[in-house]
Design a protein around this nucleic acid. Structure first.
Length: 188
DNA sequence: CCCTGATTCGC
DNA sequence: GCGAATCAGG
């Protein structure tokens, strides 16, 4: 008996964790990552709503979600005609992410039930922690090192990320996103 | 580009 | 009840 997996099945335990983490302020994707690999952020959000949760630390409703209004048209699955090639493998289509040691959205995180909640993320900013032996001095920077500065340039604990940088920029993947994203916005 | 949660709806 | 798809905002 190879008990397959347990993709779904909100046990009390998991629900508890869900509640806790949700109220702790973690994002759905992060919770999903923490809960398990089979749990997606959608699943988490869905459950959250079902549990009547949501609205954790939100005293002021600053997001009066506009009503979908005229959105009663049929969408998503339900294609009775298409029967040829099925896209059955909808289980693991999360590609483009061989390994990522960071803690980010649903595109990352993969913990075992062992570590569970010991790592915890630092509130406010989630910066990468660069091991000392990886930190780079200004003089140590090279073409392919991430030139993302960390710390106070006037302080001694100033160093550069040093991770392998992308060809598309002077930063590593993580910092490239940091540098770009959210600073551009309003440009869809 | 990526992220966030919200909602709907087929299962 | 569940979660993928979709939407909408950032």
């Amino acid at each position: 008996m190879v008990s397959g997996a347990q993709p779904a099945g909100w046990t009390d335990e998991r629900v508890e964790t869900l509640k806790k983490l949700w109220m702790e302020g973690l994002s759905a994707s992060q919770i999903a990552g923490q809960l398990g690999e089979g749990v997606t952020r959608n699943a988490v959000i869905g459950k959250v709503h079902r549990l009547k949760l949501s609205a954790r630390a939100k005293p002021t409703n600053s997001t009066p979600r506009a009503r979908p209004a005229a959105r009663t048209a049929p969408r998503r699955v339900a294609s009775p005609s298409v029967g040829a090639s099925n896209m059955g493998s909808a289980s693991k289509m999360r590609s483009s992410m061989p390994q990522r040691p960071q803690t980010m959205g649903a595109t990352a995180l993969a913990h075992n039930p062992e570590m569970e909640q010991q790592l915890y993320v630092a509130p406010a900013v989630q910066e990468l922690f660069i091991p000392e032996d990886k930190r780079l001095n200004l003089l140590q920077l090279s073409e392919s090192t991430c030139k993302w500065p960390i710390g106070d340039p006037l302080h001694k604990d100033f160093y550069f990320c040093g991770q392998h940088s992308l060809e598309s920029g002077p930063y590593c993947e993580f910092h490239s996103k940091r540098a770009y994203h959210q600073v551009d916005k309003k440009r869809r």
